[in-house]
Write a protein that binds this DNA or RNA. Structure first.
Length: 337
DNA sequence: AACATAGTCAACCGCGCAAGT
DNA sequence: TACTTGCGCGGTTGACTATGT
């Protein structure tokens, strides 16, 4: 059965939008809100396709659209995210407040992509930015941290289409978990706080609840009994990654901005002192250490007497949390991200 | 000044997914 | 379960502008 066109093409305007059309669309959406794009043109009195209206609104008229050149920081983030996500422009745009997927896609194709082709891209601003010359999301293979995924899952992740999770999906630590951690100095389990079906998402030696992700099946059978520290740390990093509130502008972009290698180094060298909690019990020692390290690298993080607050959710993590492995996980391009 | 070429970016197009019926 | 509908996505196009000859 053939697919019906989104709207009748006859008698519709095409090409650049006029100021009058912009005003009509803006006024209509201010009153009636977004959505129902199919019927919007007729109701608003526009001779445009609904999809065209939607695109115009999202890419140009919508409040909060950031105009002007992409900054150096934004470019770095784009490169990093593209290295991680491939051509999933909407996901990348979601981590750059005010930027649209179209804008980022254009920027990539006209600037970064060309630099890659010419082999002149300078990665010096961050040695983490190892650009993949093959951005094709369908064929690209993702790098694996320390061969972990190859050894334990069977293959590198291959990018799939973006999966939308419910907006109110949030993975949090419950009091039970916090208590457990207080007793044992270690987080073992995560609970999910949402109103959608959740599936146990088992990782080696621990589990947390998560909506089924595109790659979850391939990630569920990593139950080998390898107890080496690398896997332990990867596991903890995965737990860490599960603990995000998947809504709002912070999302993963804030995480991705962090320099985990540096955080790891700070922790390792115990170089940051004089902040956080000075209580000497194990749990607070952990909090203090993490607070010291990340708090300086990432000012949005805050700390009170008993809790370390991440910008995406409240959580506590164990004393041995290894930010270097966090870096590896991020660079690996986790599909459920 | 006129033309050619390259670069930029808004807009279009077709496909696929998910929800609704 | 099959089909329809609405929407979002990524790839592509083409108009416009800048630069070079």
């Amino acid at each position: 059965m053939g697919r019906s066109p989104c709207c009748s093409k006859e008698g519709l305007n095409k090409g650049a939008w006029t100021a009058m059309e912009d005003k009509i669309l803006t006024d209509y959406i201010k009153i009636h809100g977004e959505g129902k794009w199919r019927h919007l043109p007729k109701r608003a009195g526009l001779k445009r396709c609904g999809k065209s209206c939607r695109l115009r609104w999202l890419n140009y008229l919508r409040p909060g659209i950031k105009r002007g050149n992409i900054t150096h920081d934004e470019e770095e983030l784009i490169i990093r995210l593209h290295n991680l996500l491939g051509n999933r422009w909407s996901l990348i745009a979601g981590r750059l407040p005010g930027r649209t997927d179209n804008e980022i896609k254009n920027y990539w194709n006209t600037n970064i992509g060309r630099k890659l082709q010419n082999g002149t891209q300078n990665c010096s601003s961050s040695n983490l930015l190892q650009l993949d010359p093959n951005p094709n999301p369908k064929t690209r293979e993702w790098p694996c941290p320390n061969n972990y995924l190859q050894n334990n899952i069977g293959s590198c992740l291959v990018q799939t289409k973006a999966t939308r999770w419910p907006n109110n999906n949030k993975v949090i630590l419950t009091k039970e978990i916090i208590t457990k951690q207080n007793n044992e100095g270690m987080v073992h389990n995560h609970h999910i706080n949402n109103n959608v079906n959740a599936t146990d998402y088992k990782m080696k030696g621990s589990s947390f609840s998560s909506p089924v992700s595109p790659s979850s099946e391939s990630n569920t059978n990593i139950d080998d009994d390898n107890n080496n520290n690398n896997n332990k740390n990867i596991e903890e990093a995965l737990d860490f990654m599960a603990d995000f509130q998947t809504e709002g502008n912070n999302l993963y972009s804030e995480l991705l901005k962090m320099d985990f290698a540096e955080a790891s180094s700070c922790l390792e060298n115990n170089m940051l002192e004089g902040s956080g909690n000075n209580n000497n019990n194990n749990n607070n020692k952990h909090i203090s250490t993490v607070d010291k390290a990340v708090g300086q690298l990432y000012p949005k993080l805050s700390f009170n007497d008993t809790h370390f607050h991440w910008p995406w959710s409240d959580s506590l993590y164990d004393t041995d949390f290894d930010f270097q492995h966090m870096e590896n996980i991020i660079e690996s391009g986790f599909d459920w991200l």
